[in-house]
Design a protein around this nucleic acid. Structure first.
Length: 297
DNA sequence: CGGGACTCCTGCCAGC
DNA sequence: TGCTGGCAGGAGTCCC
């Protein structure tokens, strides 16, 4: 599932075909993603050059030379498929179709196509249509509804035990729910919330305020801040090192399945040295939580 | 205002 | 074999 590391890896996969490149044409097969695409979506993008492709939380932000910003969110099933322009292809073939024609899963659900001036084609497929795209003037960036209330980035200097101590003071929601709350720390989804809590040895059911104190920080808050960052960094490193696999032969930027310690491991042995626990699964706010009831307290 | 339930959507898989 | 129901999950919205 696309959490921050997957979005970051997809962003890096898109850089070579997007950054510094001009969009020739935008083709929409349907406009109803999670929110309807604005009527002027194509017009705001066509002929513009993508000056940079950034990430904020789980959103990718393409800054366009015409002053607009293209916002893209993968939702749960969003995928990009890259068709590199094949210069060795026979004249007349605009781009080299690959085996993705035979990958019905993604090909069937291509909703947005960016035809680049380079000849490269970038397709966005999203069978569940939980993904989001929008285009708006750069001046509206900080006030954009989807961006303005986002919490801090987990990979920067802001995330610390002190920050979590402050954010979780007086917060009664379980730690798992607090980690999923994008208004506090962004980028953590269901999988990495489980993994971070496991590494921190904290129960997902523990009330958030129980890892805080009036003194400004606690050992548990420090530890959790560290494991959030580590879990995400490790996943990005794994995604980056496997980028060639990640951008598969079909040009599809898929989600690399990382090796998880607890996620989807219900009934299996806890991997912590000296722990004899068995990974359990519970449901919290409608979502599966995996954890070790023995070493997570 | 905080927190939980509900909602969007479709593919997939277990179970009958 | 084919249908059904449950599950997956990011995040906005609604309601208590």
């Amino acid at each position: 599932m696309p959490e921050l590391p997957e979005v970051e890896t997809v962003r890096r996969g898109l850089l070579p075909v997007m950054e510094g490149e001009q969009v020739r044409r935008v083709v929409l097969h349907r406009r109803d993603l999670r929110f309807p695409l604005p009527d002027d979506f194509e017009a705001r993008i066509e002929a513009a050059t993508i000056e940079s492709l950034d990430r904020r939380a789980k959103y990718m932000l393409a800054h366009l030379s015409n002053g607009n910003v293209l916002l893209m969110h993968l939702g749960m099933s969003g995928r990009f498929i890259i068709h590199r322009h094949d210069e060795t292809a026979a004249a007349g073939s605009f781009y080299h179709r690959t085996a993705s024609d035979t990958t019905p899963k993604a090909a069937k659900h291509v909703h947005v196509v960016f035809e680049m001036a380079s000849g490269d084609i970038i397709e966005y497929a999203d069978h569940r249509r939980f993904g989001v795209m929008d285009v708006f003037p750069r001046a509206q960036l900080s006030s954009h509804k989807l961006l303005e209330k986002l919490g801090i980035e987990p990979l920067g200097n802001e995330l610390s035990g002190t920050f979590l101590n402050e954010a979780f003071r007086g917060k009664k929601a379980p730690l798992k729910a607090a980690l999923l709350d994008q208004h506090i720390v962004v980028g953590v989804g269901n999988i990495y919330a489980c993994e971070a809590l496991y590494r921190a040895g904290l129960s997902p059911r523990r009330m958030s305020n129980t890892i805080t104190s009036r003194s400004g920080t606690t050992a548990r808050a420090e530890r959790l801040a560290d494991t959030i960052r580590e879990v995400l960094q490790d996943a990005i490193a794994a995604g980056g090192s496997s980028l060639r696999d990640y951008v598969n032969a079909d040009g599809e930027l898929g989600y690399f399945q990382h090796a998880f310690d607890v996620y989807d491991r219900a009934g299996e042995e806890c991997r912590r040295e000296g722990c004899s626990g068995t990974i359990g699964r519970i449901v919290q706010s409608g979502r599966s939580t995996y954890f070790c009831p023995v070493c997570q307290r």
